[in-house]
Amino acid sequence: MKKNKELTWALAEKLDLPGDLVPGAGRVTVSGGRQAVIEGHRGILDYSEERVTVSFVRGRLSLLGSGLRLKAMNGDELLVEGEIQTAEWG
């Protein structure tokens, strides 16, 4: 399974395709440091006013800041609002 995903990424890189076209790849859009739209997530790992950690197929994303709030959530998308200071991918 893991090998298949690696192959998909390698193929996408060879074909010069945008990363968000790869199945299972997450996409994060931060607007003005106040709002973040996260697409293709696999669930929340941690949620507090200072940190929101979201799981993806390949890794996890941590948004750090103050007054963070999950404005809306469904199976694919997440909307986070608040003072976003740092985004860490790991």
């Binding site: 997530h41 669930g43 949620y47 709030r69 999950l70 404005k71 809306a72 959530m73 469904n74 199976g75």
Partner: peptide, 10 residues
């Protein structure tokens, strides 16, 4: 989220 239940103002 996995069950498709929409939640907001969390």
């Amino acid at each position: 989220a996995l069950s498709g239940i929409e939640v907001w103002n969390i």
